[in-house]
Design a binder for these strands. Structure first.
Lengths: 265, 265
DNA sequence: CGAAGCATTGACACAACTCAAGCTTTGTGG
DNA sequence: CCACAAAGCTTGAGTTGTGTCAATGCTTCG
């Protein structure tokens, strides 16, 4: 989609990425210190866990996955990154990368050295605010991922993944009902906390149900609403006793403020 | 532990919280805009999901839980907060709280209005950096939580929780082998992606194995090493085929850089 | 002292995993 | 450009870790 631009001004994603909100003057400064067109081909690493972190990155085209690795070598994929999204925000505590980031396909990346970013933030408060906003957003994304891993059925997890990508592709000006998922079934399973076989079976089932049409990596969503409904209610025994109570409790807690007692002294 | 101080300078946690790294002059400014001694008793809310966010908070004494709620009312606890930890960092995207935060016991809290914080950051770059560091740390914590939820057995999850609290209590000057867990079994199970009954059974089992001694909320850790080992290796069939391969792959990927090909153009 | 909430333990069920076999696509070297 | 090996995907059969349901016990607190 469009040739790679050399400047932020010409970039499709300047409203999504770190540069969002900057005025022309500021974006010019930002532009000057941005290193452009880091290139990775499929399965190459942007960086690995344990490596020193001296930049953060923005996906320009293509896609990436990030994962954390424990002492036993187990890997948990924590995120997939699409164009305009920022990579490496978890490294700003220690300046060591806690996660590994790997390309899912041919991918180009913009690099912002942390030293430059810090200097820029001294004079551009908007930039600082945008970084803070993006990091806060990253926390929210992880919280949603926890909800998915902790509370959802296999069916709901895959439906969530599909809806998530549909919406993100939409935001980027692509079709929200037909897209390529660049990662393997294995990667999806890993991200979703499921075995690859379960993911595969669910794809088949969703297709049999007429919700989607799949051909390898290409997914066509036929019934978006049904997917939305699926994420809300579990298919077998949709409203069991536990769920019902939880739901009631929720509406209660929103409507009335019985326990809201905050006192200053 | 110690009477509540009225100033940041006298606070036990000034090396952990937002004020960390500030010099005397800066901390005085910081102090001036900090609202102190917000008080909550058990099960009261600091704020609820959907509420406007105009402050972030630091736990001063006591403890809190935060959880996100989906449209069906399912709740996923995303974190427990101990003294010195910052609450509300996920609200800085939209200035609406995505999660609900509730006291687990009598808790006192410092409040930093976002407006004040923003002003302060204009003149104190250290403060900005500290906020960024803390947010980055929050992302890492969530990533670890995903690893726990996505890849660990029930046994490993509870062991992780115990070790996590042991280390955090230690950092705060409390005993790392004997402490009170202020949350219910239900909350632990929710956080760990397990049924409360499973948590309860595991507590009994750990006690039978001699790893810990439990009495309601009070936990004494008898064998820290065994817990550490448990987190690494699954108890039944510790090194199955899959694990072994994963482990090998990991050491490989760290030692050699076969696929590391980053090209600039 | 009784009620309500929280924790424990047991029996059973089932969602998702593992193992296994076969199929399809992709990448590569001759 | 073909052939074949390797990787990725699908589907089936059987297993199991953890959840659900249920009954009972133990605190706490009004």
């Amino acid at each position: 989609m469009g040739a790679l631009q050399r400047t932020c001004n010409g970039c499709n994603y300047k409203k999504i990425c770190l540069a969002s909100g900057l005025d022309d003057d500021e974006i010019a400064k930002f532009d000057r210190v941005m290193k452009r067109r880091l290139r990775l081909s499929r399965s190459n690493y942007l960086f690995r866990s344990g490596a020193p972190a001296d930049s953060i990155y923005t996906v320009r085209s293509g896609s990436l996955k990030s994962y954390v690795t424990d002492e036993e070598g187990r890997e948990q994929i924590t995120n997939f990154y699409l164009p305009g999204e920022i990579v490496g925000l978890d490294a700003l505590t220690s300046n060591i990368h806690p996660s590994t980031v790997q390309a899912l396909e041919s991918t180009t990346i913009c690099e912002m050295p942390l030293a430059s970013l810090n200097k820029l933030m001294d004079t551009i408060p908007t930039l600082r605010n945008q970084l803070i906003r993006l990091m806060s957003g990253a926390i929210r994304v992880e919280e949603d991922h926890s909800m998915l891993l902790g509370k959802k059925t296999a069916e709901q997890r895959l439906a969530s993944l599909l809806l998530n990508f549909a919406s993100r592709f939409h935001d980027r000006g692509y079709s929200s009902h037909e897209f390529n998922l660049s990662m393997s079934r294995n990667d999806m399973g890993n991200y979703l906390g499921l075995a690859m076989e379960t993911v595969s079976r669910l794809f088949s089932r969703f297709q049999d149900m007429g919700l989607i049409t799949v051909n390898r990596k290409l997914v066509h969503i036929n019934d978006l609403d049904a997917l939305h409904v699926m994420v809300l209610e579990s298919s077998p025994d949709a409203l069991g006793k536990g769920q019902k109570e939880a739901k009631q409790e929720y509406t209660q807690s929103v409507s009335q403020n019985s326990k809201e007692t905050v006192l200053y002294h």
